[in-house]
Write a protein that binds this DNA or RNA. Sequence first.
DNA 1: CCAGGACATTGACGCCCGTCCATACCTCCG
DNA 2: CGGAGGTATGGACGGGCGTCAATGTCCTGG
Lengths: 123, 123
Amino acid sequence: MPVDTRGTPTTVPAACCPPAALAAGLSGQQAADLARRLKALADPARLRLLSLIAGSPAGEACVCDLTDPLGLTQPTVSHHLKVLVDAGFLARDKRGVWAWFSIVPGAMETVAALLPGAVPARA
Amino acid sequence: MPVDTRGTPTTVPAACCPPAALAAGLSGQQAADLARRLKALADPARLRLLSLIAGSPAGEACVCDLTDPLGLTQPTVSHHLKVLVDAGFLARDKRGVWAWFSIVPGAMETVAALLPGAVPARA
DNA sequence: CCAGGACATTGACGCCCGTCCATACCTCCG
DNA sequence: CGGAGGTATGGACGGGCGTCAATGTCCTGG
């Protein structure tokens, strides 16, 4: 340990931003929770799925519309969609034979708002 | 023999929009790049590392200060720090015996700004 | 010059994840 | 009621990731 002559940990200056998340204290629980949601996003196929659904005319799409653009098999796409639904980024609405997936409003923003908390605007 | 009947040369339509990220045409390249950065963040240990460094009085910390709070061994912490440096979230400054790590300003915000692009404020 | 400390690298192990194939489920239509 | 099409699930395989112990490298102090 470098003895840390520069300051006591109780100081915790900055930490200005109230909605900050990654600010000093980020508990193991909080880190695990945020990491779980980020892990759901950290996949090219899932990012493209979100992109395709968000960009579709009606704001929703069914599995059959998503397999071709991704070049993945139907079960694989279904698996990715399930991951995104479980993580709270997508909503599934099964109407008749087809399952329509739509973006959950605010879910992405919530995660995005948590990230910059790590850099509390140092002086 | 995989045969690969679906051998579409990754037509990648659109890919036009410069600002938004998850907007309609998120190309495979863009998705892979964003996924790679998100993958670097999608780990509880790394999130806590960023938190600890950002919350430290001087905005920087060395490995020896980070092993104890995480309960991980020094090689493991060093590995995580390398991942974060390679992803552009941390900067390493080796001064004498110690290596000081600091947050790269704006890196987190860049990623955070890309995420909400998935929900282009539907009418 | 040598001993010691701080950090990085290597190799190994176990686990999780992404992908596929095969198949079951569910709903509509004739 | 039975077939057909869209979707979800289960099992299996390969690869990647997180972790650790052991070792290497570089700098400092005596």
